[in-house]
Design a protein around this nucleic acid. Sequence first.
DNA 1: GGGCATTTGTTCGTATGTATG
DNA 2: CCATACATACGAACAAATGCC
Lengths: 90, 90
Amino acid sequence: MAETPIDPRGRRAPYQQVADVIIREIDAGKYGPDGPIPSEPALCERFGVARETVRRALGVLRDAGRIETLRGRGSFVIPRSDGQPEPGNE
Amino acid sequence: MAETPIDPRGRRAPYQQVADVIIREIDAGKYGPDGPIPSEPALCERFGVARETVRRALGVLRDAGRIETLRGRGSFVIPRSDGQPEPGNE
DNA sequence: GGGCATTTGTTCGTATGTATG
DNA sequence: CCATACATACGAACAAATGCC
């Protein structure tokens, strides 16, 4: 079972829901300022979605400049430029 | 913008238009006698159509015996049998 | 160097829901 | 109703880069 199931029929598409969750976690500092986020297979497991859906979500994050992805390595949080402190876990 | 836009309202359906263009290019030797043709996503981009439309077009080419498609690899031009020389570029 | 597991990149196969003419 | 088309999603296979032993 997926740890963080998403609603396949929500008003927002599944890949957008996945993107939302991960963005919030990055904002909360869950992965560190420049840390790696979980691998695609791990995210598939967690959300109970296909790899394509995870990859779409990560595409949203890349387009938003929140992560960068390296082949054979993984995806990494892009540190905030100075003056924009981490939102911090609450 | 699509490099080779097709007319969504032409007398021929979009998938037929796409099939026509690719067949002409194969005849012109553009992809080599047994070379790969561009991937489905690439063709979607080029013609500005959805993947289903590209797949229908490729279905026409397969039914006509002009290409063969391999999962995870791509679609390849089927060489002409002897006695039927390539139409030749120009 | 080789071999292997992990990870992302790419490709086709299939299915569903929605919309249009 | 039906054919066509688009967007999304899941599945499977192949490919390339990385890293570790």
